[in-house]
Simulated assay, not measured.
Amino acid sequence: MPQQVKGVIARAKGAPTELVTINIPDPGPGEAVVKISACGVCHTDLHYREGGIGEDFPYLLGHEAAGIVEAVGEGVRDLEPGDYVILNWRAVCGTCRACKRGRPWYCFATFNATQKMTLEDGTELSPALGIGAFADKTLVAAGQCTKIDPRARPAAAGLLGCGVMAGIGAAINTGNVGRGDSVAVIGCGGVGSAAIAGARLAGANKIIAIDIDDRKLAKAKELGATDVINSSGGDPVEQLQQLTGGFGADVVIEAVGRPETYQQAFYGRDLAGTVVLVGVPTPEMKLELPLLDVFGRGGSLKSSWYGDCLPDRDFPMLIDLYLQGRLPLDAFVSEEIGIDGIEGAFEKMHHGDVLRSVVVW
């Protein structure tokens, strides 16, 4: 039977979020209804509220979530009621040209649930990143559900659904950080901090955290940074080179998404080094670099999509590392809040007071 649950929506650009009643249809073919256990408050949700991603209001916000499968639709295999899952926003199609080439982490035709969740008056909702998890329950494509070990704490596990996976994947999958490498991370919010944790997992020898907030730099040290640079106190490229024998880092991960910090990443890497852009820019931003420098410095300039992750491969593996005590996911949970605390969480995010506020049911 279709259900009515409570969910948090952004009704119009810049308007405060609202807790409203929403309608959840029964899962159709290839779909699942998931009861949400916890959902992180990500900066992407704020982008949706502010109209920075699209104009398909009203949006059902929330996407960094873990929960329990309640029901599945016709044709769903390998997923059943009671499964503990992390939701992902890149359900792999298996048939596009990337998937056929054996690179499903680049899938160009990811999909979401076909049916729409609605307001009580029938207005269709646009779920954030195809998930919409600031709700008691949500409807997703079954491929958006990745089963994990049920011992994992929901508030921590759900963060792999977006920001933490994006950062860890930027280091391990996109940046190919290896043992003994030097790594610099520009921007130490949730994604940048996760990139630091990922570089540590990969065995990097020197991990340099760069930010303008000493609180974030202190947290970066806890997560594995060997050195920190407060870039408000001088040229971060010069300081980065001083910490790397005058050469620059093997891999520089830009987790801000601004032209000026991207230039710092570009010039802060060693010759033939790698730059990874994982920070999300806004549409009006432009980048200008001398083409001769692009050629002369060699190496790779990469963008990291969702940490180039394959959820079915990466989520269970990272949860195993978490349960072994080798990946400190709990350190990313700054506070647990109720469903009515999202506006306050946005404010704390804006002021840099938290890595993640997590809504817990």
Rank of each mutant, 00 (worst) to 15 (best):
A12K: 14
G233K: 15
D56T: 07
F346C: 02
G257H: 12
G299H: 11
R97T: 11
A218R: 05
N205E: 15
D330L: 11
T146K: 00
E343W: 01
Y306C: 00
L129Q: 14
P281Q: 12
D320T: 11
G352E: 03
L160Q: 10
V85D: 07
G245V: 13
M117K: 03
A197K: 01
Y48T: 08
V354S: 04
T226M: 08
A113Y: 00
K137P: 05
Q3L: 13
S231D: 03
F134Q: 02
D149F: 13
T146E: 00
D340W: 03
I9R: 05
G307P: 08
P281E: 07
C162S: 12
L287P: 00
D45G: 13
D314G: 01
A272K: 15
A133E: 09
D121F: 07
N205G: 14
V360C: 13
D250V: 09
I24P: 07
P328R: 01
R215A: 15
G163E: 03
L19G: 13
A142V: 05
D320W: 03
K13S: 13
D83C: 15
V359N: 01
L327S: 06
G94M: 07
A66K: 00
S126M: 13
C99W: 09
A71M: 13
C96S: 05
R297F: 09
L79G: 04
H63I: 11
R297Y: 04
V358W: 06
L61P: 00
A38C: 11
A157T: 02
V358M: 08
L201N: 09
T44D: 12
A38G: 03
V191C: 04
Q324Y: 07
C42G: 06
A152I: 10
G175W: 03
I168M: 04
G167H: 10
L289Y: 03
V5H: 02
A209T: 04
V360E: 10
Q324C: 07
L223K: 01
L310K: 08
C107Q: 06
I68Q: 11
V92S: 05
V354N: 05
S334W: 11
G268H: 01
P150I: 13
G344P: 06
V41G: 10
G245F: 12
G248D: 00
A209I: 08
G54I: 06
I196G: 04
G190V: 12
I319M: 00
D78C: 00
V251W: 08
Y48L: 13
